[in-house]
């Protein structure tokens, strides 16, 4: 049952990722990204990372993706303008990507991963555990990240403001 679910969600994520690459229309690309994000969120549920799955859906699908679509609307001359790369660029890119995929997969499969903790993991980390770790062990990165978000907020507002005012 778990294996079936994994294959379904992995197929969703992968096929949408292929869609991202091949679709010419930028809004369709963004919608394919939604498929990938949703598939990956379902995989997080399978990996017992419920909190992460919910954050992925809220921040990525509900926030970042809307921002991207918004950006598309604000920056397009006409909805059907398509910039296509030259054939040489495509061939080179495919070659690099194929090389990278084969290299990574060979590496992952040939590595003998240590078998993990001695006892089988009965209790996977809950939301409360993630929160505890976030506010004790990783307090410094957490604070840095919040400062970074503030900087990003001010920076984005500064960059995007109209020049004339």
């Amino acid at each position: 049952m778990d294996a079936l679910a994994f294959y379904i969600f992995a197929a969703l994520a992968l096929s949408s990722a292929v869609g991202v690459v091949v679709s010419k229309n930028i809004v369709r690309t963004a919608i394919c990204l939604l498929g990938t994000l949703g598939g990956v969120a379902c995989l997080y549920f399978l990996l017992d990372a419920n909190f992460l799955a919910a954050v992925q859906l809220i921040v990525y699908a509900g926030g970042t993706l809307i921002l991207i679509v918004f950006g598309v609307m604000l920056t397009s001359q006409s909805p059907w303008v398509v910039f296509s790369p030259t054939r040489g660029q495509v061939v080179a890119a495919c070659f690099v990507a194929l090389l990278m995929a084969t290299g990574l997969i060979t590496l992952f499969i040939s590595t003998d991963w240590p078998t993990g903790p001695a006892a089988p993991l009965t209790a996977s980390p809950k939301v409360a555990d993630v929160g505890t770790v976030l506010l004790t062990q990783y307090l410094a990165p957490f604070e840095v990240a919040s400062v970074l978000l503030l900087v990003v907020m001010i920076g984005a507002a500064y960059l995007a403001r109209s020049e004339k005012q």
């Binding site: 992968l14 890119a93 690099v96 990507a97 990278m100 995929a101 997969i105």
Partner: peptide
């Protein structure tokens, strides 16, 4: 790895 390569592509 596959999604990574597709992202690079």
């Amino acid at each position: 790895a596959l999604i990574f390569s597709l992202g690079i592509l």
